[in-house]
Design a protein around this nucleic acid. Sequence first.
DNA 1: CCGTTGCCCTGCCAGC
DNA 2: TGCTGGCAGGGCAACG
Length: 270
Amino acid sequence: MPELPEVETIARGLAHAVTGRSIASVVIRLPKMAQAPPGVDFARALPGERIVGVGRRAKYVLVELASGRRLVTSLRMTGRLVVQRPGEPDFPGTHVVLHFTDGSRLSFADLRTFGRMRLVEPDDAWDKSLGPEPLSSGFTPEAFIGMLSGRTTRIKALLLDQQRIAGIGNIYACEALWKAGIKPGRPAMSLSKPAIRRLHHAIVDVLTRAIEMRGTSVDDYVDAEGLRGGFQSALAVYGKLGQPCERCGSPIVRTVIAQRGTWWCRTCQR
DNA sequence: CCGTTGCCCTGCCAGC
DNA sequence: TGCTGGCAGGGCAACG
């Protein structure tokens, strides 16, 4: 499911593929997929716009337009952004299509229709409720210690809270907690400072390595070029129920925290 | 403000 | 073989 490393990989691929193209027309087949702020007509606002770059914030793909506006896309679980050549048949489950002046197009497809695309004005603080990027200089061990202090919520739930840290999803929360040797159900405020520092390091390490390997493909995730990620071979706990922990040999267990499946080692995560 | 729960969706798969 | 129920999960609304 696209988390920070997958969205980063998708955005890099798209940047290569669509930067410089101009939008000729927009087709919206499922209106709820193309949300816009009130008063903005999504399909009518885009023709004439030129794409000047593609970036990422948290788990959102940002298509930057020459006017300063941007298309903010949340892929949720099954959303895909696919660049298609002229005449190529529609990708299955396509709900929004940006047609470019050169005949190619960018299709927003989503089997489960959870994804959303929004057109955002230059001055719109659309990401004001998102926490810091975990790979930015603002995410320091000290900042992380402050984030956890006094918080009774379980540490894994906090890692998934986008208002605290933006971009971590279920896979990398499980992996970072395993690497740091921390039990996912512990109240955030119960972690010692050395443990928080270990977790901080683990988050940065896991995300960085996952980006290097172009993300994790557990089910059907593929990047903008249709390629699978490589980090699934480096997973230590996610989805590995009953398999021996590679650190201590105990079987990996699965519990539920914050309505999410949680894989961890009862022996070496404390 | 804080923390938790439920809902949106469809494909897949275990179990009967 | 065919059905059913549970699971997958990001983001948002609602609630106490």
